[in-house]
Computed example of a mutant assay.
Amino acid sequence: MIKVHHLNQSRSTRILWLLEELQMEYEVEHHQRDEQTRLAQPSLGQVHSLNKAPIIEHNSLKICESGAIVEYILDHAKHSNLRPEKGTRAYYQYLEWCHFAEGSLALPVIASLLMQMESRDGAQAMDGYIAKELKLDLSFIDATLSEQRYFAGEQFTAADIMMTVILEIALSANLIENRPQISRYLADMQARCAYQRARAYG
């Protein structure tokens, strides 16, 4: 059985959501953020030296990083339509968006969130870059979702799990204003039963 090391208010929700969608058995070990620093407490570092969530343990393996864990779980699922058939157009869309979530989009979204949490006097060197990247990325996302229901086309896939969680972080940083397609998409994702079961873990 897969053990998920889940940190509250973190991207490890992706892994719980994926397992719920696949109806796979799993167990959860909870880890809490430090109330002052908002970082993971040392218990997570005792599992993996990076001290980050998500982490899974399965068949004597410990794996960190959302994208790698998603692929591992899909490889071990008995049946799944959450990853399109390799070689198809939908597969390469799926692959692009899975990497986009933690590649292009995560840096400007999380940097923007962190900048909102600190006291700042005047513009900083990163401000222009972050603003440019956010506009570019979010416009690309909104345009894509105006043409298709999901990121890999008309079928829900694990790419939607990867993208939803980072888009929720963007939403919490008030970065989704005037992005109607993203707002519609998030509402659809949050209505999924498996998503709601995963979110119940905190």
Rank of each mutant, 00 (worst) to 15 (best):
G202I: 07
Y150Q: 12
S12E: 00
Q116H: 15
L44W: 05
E85L: 14
P84F: 10
E168N: 13
F140S: 03
A170D: 05
T37H: 06
P180A: 08
Y185D: 00
L145V: 02
Y195A: 02
I182S: 05
F140I: 00
R38M: 13
D121K: 15
C193Y: 12
S60C: 11
I55R: 02
V47W: 13
Q46Y: 04
P108K: 02
V70A: 04
N8F: 01
L95M: 03
R14T: 00
L145N: 06
E154M: 13
L107T: 08
L61D: 03
A158N: 11
H31N: 05
S104K: 14
S43V: 04
Y26I: 08
R11N: 03
Q36S: 13
I182K: 04
E96R: 15
A125E: 09
N51Q: 11
D160Q: 06
S139P: 02
E154W: 09
L145C: 04
F156A: 01
D160H: 06
L134T: 04
Q23Y: 00
T164A: 07
Q36C: 10
E102T: 07
L138K: 06
S60P: 05
E29T: 15
E25R: 13
L107G: 05
E147H: 11
H30A: 10
V47G: 08
D142E: 11
I141L: 12
D160L: 02
C64P: 08
I55Q: 12
H79P: 02
H58P: 03
I182N: 05
Q46G: 07
E27G: 09
I130N: 04
A53L: 12
N81D: 12
N59G: 09
A194N: 07
Q46N: 01
Q124A: 00
E133T: 02
S80M: 03
L171G: 01
A90T: 03
Q190A: 00
C98K: 14
E21T: 02
A125I: 08
D34S: 11
R192T: 00
H99M: 13
L22N: 08
T157Q: 05
G128E: 03
E154D: 04
Y195G: 03
